[in-house]
Design a protein around this nucleic acid. Structure first.
Lengths: 194, 194
DNA sequence: GATATACAAACTAACGTTCGTTAGCAAACC
DNA sequence: GGTTTGCTAACGAACGTTAGTTTGTATATC
């Protein structure tokens, strides 16, 4: 009850910062901008946070966690690689569409992380991408998928999925699941008839 | 001959700026950074350019021009919508892969344009996207394509194509045309066998 | 002699952050 | 019950630095 009504100041800061980082980018958002939308002075922010970059770190690694958590469901899939890939895509899109602002920051602003966070971030990304490549590889070996370059395929699939945060409308007609489903359908079966 | 050997200072500035904007982002790149990689003082840049944003404008609108020019070839296609879409994708990817740095700036930094450039940019983008949607619409009506939401389809296709600048390696084994061809193939026919 | 290109110096504005302080409030003490 | 103590969250002022840009001037080239 309390958590719904009364958000901690720190939480408010992170939410507004996410919005601003999405709209203007991390570098183009000043601490004074952020303070202004919260109705306080820039100095007051530092009663709650350590630094500007700390906010970015929180956003990026929280989202990374969301993506990894969503994978648990995918691993449960014991059917075809088609089914597994479909499940992976839907889970991935679900995370994005349920956090469009954070996703935008996650995808566009991670490069402003300083070391050692940057290295850790990239290593997590590599791990995650590898999981998609594994499904493709398995699907190719089982004959379900066409003979394709796994990396090329993974990059193409993820780029489609990762763009959804730019146009997804939570109050639109398409639900999160429907979008994931349509994307999986398109990428697996193509635009052409037959 | 001359153009290959001796580039004007202005041209050098734009090239180095493109690199830096790609690597660090527009806002995170300072005029002193730019001057340094050119081996001159920041003040000296202003003997050649009007402002920092002017560089960004040049990059963004030059790329926009490239995309529109590449469309001339597409319009010549008189065959199926499949053939036309394929041609459009290949042409689009060709522009990107032949200008990876400029493309990165074009796709990631356009939001830092000030008015009226921002509005003009967005209007050009809308026009360009509309051309892809038209092909999809025609293909659906002719029965070549599945019954799909044109906008959803256009967004998915373009997001795949527009990501190529992030991983394309000019000295790699895949040529620009091959990449366009593979992308077109995947998006039209899907990953699955049969 | 004009033009192009570079410079040093300086400008105003803004940056992220730190500082010392304070107002409000709740618990602890006499 | 009144006073003291400590905490939280805010403040204004200022820190040192960097931002984009302007000005005036010197050198080199045509």
């Amino acid at each position: 009850m309390e958590t719904l009504v009364k958000k901690s100041r720190k939480q408010q800061i992170e939410e507004k910062a996410t919005q601003l980082f999405q709209e203007r980018g991390y570098s183009a958002t000043s601490m004074r901008d952020l303070a202004q939308v919260l109705g306080i002075e820039a100095a007051s922010l530092y009663s709650h946070i350590k630094s500007k970059e700390e906010i970015l770190q929180k956003i990026c690694f929280r989202m990374a966690g969301e993506f990894f958590n969503s994978w648990a469901d995918v691993e449960k899939e014991n059917g075809s690689m088609t089914a597994k890939m479909s499940k992976a895509m839907i889970a991935h899109v679900k995370v994005i569409t349920q956090n469009t602002a954070s996703s935008a920051v996650f995808f566009n602003e991670w490069r402003h992380l300083s070391e050692p966070f940057l290295t850790e971030f990239l290593s997590m990304r590599e791990d995650y991408e590898g999981r998609f490549m594994q499904i493709i590889d398995d699907g190719v070996n089982s004959g379900e998928f066409k003979l394709v370059d796994q990396k090329f395929m993974m990059l193409t699939i993820l780029s489609s999925l990762n763009w959804t945060h730019n146009w997804y409308n939570p109050s639109g007609t398409l639900s999160s699941e429907e979008i994931g489903d349509r994307l999986a359908n398109l990428l697996l079966n193509g635009l052409k008839n037959q």
